[in-house]
């Protein structure tokens, strides 16, 4: 339902988007992933026809975002990185205005606003001025205005930005709940945000689309079946043992100190119990077995073929960045 072909955007001499092409089908939840300055907000602003592309084409349900801008805007809801609130208006007054702006009228608008207030859990602040709300509530009201007119596509730009951990979990739940009625596209520079909600990710880097894998494929590509194992032993013994295990694809030494060895293993899915049993049965003290935190920098290093600094391979030689 969203089709993007060779989308390019220049700000003066600087290229913000470089011939980006992708498709999003109805009902998908897509994460737009990228570091700061990757072009995520530019992409979203073009899709919402807030900005025109320098070249290329984007359509929503066959409607061109440039030539049919008004029709496109009627079919989507947008939450920018700063919620577009009018500080002096009450929450309910603001949502009514947003609903009427998108074509809802009279009693229908009021009913829909009340429904959306329930969905986004903002009913208890409906009479408050927007300027008096906490950041978390402002984001919720921002999502409420984006869905009040039942758009087919909801576009969210960094919806969890600035939220505390509890609010982030609530926001993720809210975004997940949108999937039943809407196609969702949201941007983030935090991989965990995307992984909890999305079917697929679009990875942007310096304006270019590096890939659009499914989340399950991403896990494999980026080594999210990687585990860190620490045993109280010298490296040689555990490495020889683990090499013989089926499902262990790669072993590299992370750290050796104070009689302890930390290894990074790339495994087939769900081999961790076998790894743990093998080490313990052979008498090794298993001090750690868990997944490493995967940050976005590591994602990009992996996707672009670079290796993380400080890693040693199983022979003990330091890996040099490619």
């Amino acid at each position: 339902m969203i089709s993007v072909e060779n989308l390019t955007k220049f700000y003066g001499q600087r290229r913000a988007l470089d011939r980006v092409s992708f498709q999003i089908e109805r009902g998908e939840a897509i994460g737009l992933l990228g570091l700061n300055g990757a072009g995520k907000t530019t992409m979203l602003r073009i899709l919402t026809s807030l900005m025109l592309p320098s070249a290329g084409r984007a359509t929503l349900d066959g409607l061109d975002v440039v030539r049919n801008a008004k029709e496109v805007r009627a079919r989507l809801g947008y939450l920018p990185d700063t919620p577009p609130l009018y500080g002096e208006m009450s929450v309910q007054g603001y949502l009514l205005f947003a609903a009427q702006l998108r074509g809802l009228e009279g009693k229908k608008a009021l009913e829909r606003v009340e429904q959306v207030e329930e969905m986004t859990a903002i009913r208890d602040v409906r009479d408050e001025r927007a300027s008096h709300l906490s950041h978390g509530y402002r984001q919720r009201v921002g999502i409420a205005q984006a869905i009040v007119h039942r758009p087919s596509v909801v576009i969210l730009d960094e919806p969890t930005s600035g939220l505390d951990p509890a609010q982030t979990v609530e926001m993720r739940g809210l975004i997940r709940s949108l999937r039943s009625e809407h196609t969702v596209l949201f941007s983030s520079h935090l991989l965990p945000e995307v992984s909890h909600v999305c079917d697929r990710v679009l990875i942007l880097h310096k304006g270019a689309l590096l890939g659009s894998p499914k989340m399950s494929e991403l896990a494999a590509v980026l080594g999210m079946h990687t585990v860190l194992v620490r045993v109280r032993a010298e490296p040689k013994g555990p490495i020889e043992l683990l090499r013989k295990l089926e499902g262990v694809h790669d072993i590299s030494v992370e750290q050796v100190s104070d009689g302890q060895t930390e290894l990074r293993l790339t495994l087939a899915p769900d081999v961790r119990p076998r790894v743990a049993r093998s080490l313990i049965e052979q008498g090794y003290d298993l001090l750690r077995l868990d997944r490493p935190e995967l940050d976005l920098e590591t994602v990009f290093l992996r996707v672009t073929g670079h290796k993380s600094q400080g890693t040693r391979d199983a022979n003990g030689s330091a890996d040099r960045p490619a």
Binding site: T48, S49, L50, K70, E71, R73, A74, L76, Y78, P80, T82, P83, P84, L85, Y86, G87, A98, L101, R102, G103, Q145
Partner: peptide, 14 residues
């Protein structure tokens, strides 16, 4: 300044 322009500019209003 406040960021509220996105509401009206992303709505089906000319």
């Amino acid at each position: 300044q406040t960021g509220s322009a996105a509401l009206i500019l992303s709505a089906p209003v000319s």
